[in-house]
Design a protein around this nucleic acid. Structure first.
Lengths: 340, 340
DNA sequence: CCACCATGAAGAAACGATTCAGTGAATCGA
DNA sequence: TCGATTCACTGAATCGTTTCTTCATGGTGG
């Protein structure tokens, strides 16, 4: 038995296809008697009818599909959460998420977006895998777009990024709250928004607590495990080492743990550590488990999808284009009061 | 200027739409003079014409779209690589990948697949996030399907899983090659295919080297960092501890590192360690960097997509439904000769 | 010289919805 | 009572392709 068509429903209900369409789509401004409406509903139910999305798309020029374009999906475990957040919101609204990754190449990006446009996606989520400022592909000009984990260099596309400043502020606040006054910052040396944002939060937290900022307590290295190791060593070998280190990310914190172990600092007895990212492969697995700030990728993905759907369905919702997503502190066991 | 239609091309070339369609789709069995063909090609080029995928789909009942259904996309960084592999192959063949995740709920899975079928996907990639044996949703019966990282309990659907046995064999072979004779195995206690496969490889490797299997050298715990810690402790506190430990995965290896450090075993001087998975957040970040066996997620995703496309496009390719993907050894710094 | 056949191309019918432009019948105001 | 609305609904056009069927043309064998 092939799937029923709208005409089958119409025939069974004894009406024209127009009326079936009108009833099933709840077209407003068109009246149908309650009795007819019910007959159609019953017929559709009985046949298990639902309209063919392709035929519908051909007519309406809308596909209930959104494109998720990302630069590199691979190397970061974050990607999955962002995609999942977007996908779940889309699915619940009856939209499908089509996934494409471009490898970050500009040329490929343009081509990709054009291809998606040919496929008539209703909107595009343009994601990068860590917080950056980007030039958006020009092909995106003609389609509803929301940027994920990125802010546009020009124009004012809706976008969502993590609130690095606020996250760093609470991280350092946590250390200050535990009694620390000498707090190091092992940061990323690349000039990325996350680094400057977190540095801003760090200095702001110190300032709020009346602690003078000491440039010597900021150690910039590559934002990976060896970088964290080197940064932490530099800080801990200072004549007067910090009693706590705020690390740019969990990987640097992992390196920091090693430096601390080598130099005989026990965590958290001699040294408190806070990370950033809440990588679930690292933060809970370190010993002691790492207190860190979570990067809300799932929430950002969900927020972006919701925003895009609102755009597509012409919800008004006038507000600032950019949204800062709060980064919650995840308390574990790497923070304690300063020694002595 | 709206996008050109096929009739615009036909008009410009001075032919009927039929001929345009025939030429542009390279329909065989239909002859068109070289001159006419060229005129059409030129016209299409000039207008920048490409056919509307939706209208085409309505007619042909094919969408050049494949569904990627997964249980949990979130928690594992593996997911991304598998998806990426599949996506890139699909994209290169002109197919789009639509992503849905079901959270593993059977009910939701069935519904999801039915929804995808309504959307006329040409095929489905059904993926789980770690090697398992699964009962496939019945709705998949009517669509071309390839299983990813899973083997079906019944039926003989095409599927691809990592070659756990072979991977463990080479891992343990590496240790034996370095001179070790007393090799512990810190394994996962859950009865998953990966655990039994890797145990099989472990025993096979010993056997091949003429080393008697000692049940006491196999320590089963949860397959996470604390589990690895406990397993390694048990092994290292044996009256005659092993000189090398093969760990079920990188997380267990991470726990193993801690146990070794606590008990005064230096890696690799006193103890060699090999992991499994090659998680890029862990393996290269440990100190010393972990020698491990890579789980070829990208390759599995790509293989599955390729296989599915062949199925869709009716390539014959008769072969065994299941494919074992080799797991290459990644040499780093955690293996050395046994002490003394 | 005619019937026949291959050739090259075109007209029109799908595909399955949505929606425009009507169409009888009922209702209404005057 | 009559023209004008309103009501409830419908036939047919439309979206942009692919593909089935038809058709004119000209060459060929008998």
């Amino acid at each position: 038995m092939p799937r029923p068509r709208i005409k089958d429903v119409a025939a069974l209900a004894g009406v024209g296809t127009t009326t079936v369409s009108v009833v099933l789509n709840n077209v407003d401004g068109v009246r149908v008697t309650a009795e007819t409406r019910q007959r159609i509903l019953d017929a559709a139910q009985e046949l298990g009818y639902s309209s063919d999305p392709i035929a519908r798309s051909l007519r309406t020029r809308r596909t209930r599909t959104i494109g998720f374009v990302s630069d590199v999906i691979a190397t970061t475990p974050f990607a999955g959460r962002m995609i999942q957040g977007a996908q779940e919101v889309a699915w619940r609204a009856g939209y499908l998420l089509v996934l494409v990754n471009t490898g970050g190449d500009r040329e490929v990006q343009e081509k990709t977006v054009r291809e998606l446009l040919k496929r008539q996606v209703d909107g595009v989520l343009f994601a990068v895998m860590y917080h950056q400022e980007i030039e958006v592909p020009s092909a995106l000009a003609t389609v509803k777009t929301v940027l994920l984990d990125a802010r546009p260099t020009d124009g004012a596309l809706p976008h969502v990024v993590p609130d690095e400043h606020e996250g760093a502020l609470t991280a350092v606040g946590e250390l200050i709250g535990a009694g620390h006054r000498r707090i190091g910052f092992a940061t990323e040396s690349l000039p990325v928004p996350a680094a400057s944002g977190r540095l801003g939060g760090y200095t702001r937290a110190l300032e709020a607590a009346g602690i003078p900022f000491e440039p010597g307590l900021v150690a910039a290295e590559h934002g990976d495990t060896p970088g964290g190791y080197r940064a932490a060593r530099r800080l801990l070998e200072l004549p007067e080492p910090p009693t706590a280190i705020f690390c740019y990310n969990d990987r640097m914190a992992m390196g920091c743990y090693r430096a601390a172990a080598e130099l005989g600092f026990a965590i958290p007895a001699d040294l408190s550590v806070v990370g950033y990212d809440d990588q679930d492969l690292i933060a809970p697995a370190l010993f002691p488990a790492l207190t860190t700030v979570a990067l809300p990728h799932y929430e950002m993905g969900a927020w972006a999808a919701r925003r895009l759907l609102d755009l597509i369905e012409d919800e008004p919702r006038e507000e600032a284009p950019g949204h800062l997503m709060p980064c919650p502190l995840i308390r574990r066991d790497s923070v304690g009061p300063p020694p002595r």
